[in-house]
Simulated assay, not measured.
Amino acid sequence: MGRESGRGRGATLTPDLIIEAALRLSDADGDLDKLTVRRLAAELGVGAMTLYSYFRSRDEILDGMADRVLGRMSLPAGPATDPAQAIREVGHGFLRMMRDHPTVVRLLATRITDSRTALAGAMEGPLQRLVDAGIPGPVAVRCYGFLITYAIGFASYQVPRPWGHSGEGSDADEQRRQRSHVYSALPLDRFPRLVELSDELVALPSDAQFEFGLEAFVASVVRSL
């Protein structure tokens, strides 16, 4: 339609451009409810009715966002060498996808997609990697189910807790110090364990905690195989 994008002057409006803008807005806000057709149209520099010529409803835009993120889930090139490596790669792939686009956590928790693009990227690909590594199909399905729900839960827990995010430096260290103080300053008679373990508790939303759970699952599956 030749309209200009609010983020890309001279760019012709397309469904892909609309979805990219929707993901950018919702990821930045961290709140999918704030994504309205009117706000998205303003971001793109067009009227709301223009968007309805590409998508019939906000729900269709949300489905497009889910398809875009799920369909582009990435895994390492080449096959995994063993079941443990394949499980780690799929688990890390899910978490990476949700970090790159925090919106997908809410989308997965509230919507179901039968898009072939999404099914190929976020289901067929991970399942094939697990099976190729020597995990029987039925077990691979159970592994898949655990890994995606574990990543959804962990990402949901980590996002609003910045003291657990990766990174060193004064800001990260200060956030951890402040959170540790919240626990250590609690009344000792009522919260003896929180006070005692205040330094360890700040690591609950950390990457190390994700790895702890993932490795426990890897060990369990490898034993069963």
Rank of each mutant, 00 (worst) to 15 (best):
M1V: 14
M1E: 09
M1L: 10
R3M: 09
R3T: 12
S5D: 12
S5P: 09
A11Q: 15
T12H: 13
T14W: 05
L17T: 08
I18G: 01
I18H: 05
I19F: 04
I19N: 00
A22E: 06
L23K: 04
R24F: 12
S26V: 13
D29I: 05
L35Y: 04
R38S: 15
R39Q: 05
A41C: 00
A42R: 14
E43T: 00
A48Q: 15
T50Y: 10
T50M: 09
S53I: 06
S53V: 12
R56D: 14
R56G: 13
S57W: 02
I61F: 04
L62P: 04
L62Q: 06
D63N: 11
M65E: 03
M65Y: 05
A66Y: 14
D67Y: 06
L70T: 08
G71T: 01
R72F: 02
R72V: 05
A77R: 13
G78D: 01
A80R: 00
A84E: 08
A84Q: 06
I87G: 03
I87N: 10
E89D: 15
V90K: 06
G91F: 02
G91P: 09
H92M: 15
G93W: 07
R96D: 14
R96G: 11
M97E: 09
M98L: 12
R106F: 10
L107S: 01
L107H: 09
A109I: 06
T110W: 04
R111F: 06
I112H: 11
D114F: 11
S115P: 00
R116L: 11
R116Q: 10
L119F: 15
E124H: 14
E124V: 12
P126A: 01
P126R: 02
L127D: 02
Q128D: 15
D132T: 13
A133N: 11
I135E: 01
P138Q: 10
V139E: 14
C143A: 10
F146H: 14
F146T: 14
I148R: 13
T149L: 09
Y150I: 08
Y150V: 04
A151N: 05
G153A: 10
F154Y: 05
S156I: 09
S156P: 05
S156M: 06
Q158D: 03
P160M: 04
P160I: 02
W163K: 02
H165C: 01
S166D: 14
D171I: 14
D171T: 15
D173N: 13
Q175E: 12
Q175R: 15
R176H: 03
R177V: 00
R177F: 06
Q178W: 11
H181Q: 15
Y183L: 03
A185K: 07
R193F: 12
E200G: 03
F210A: 11
F212M: 14
S220G: 08
S224C: 08
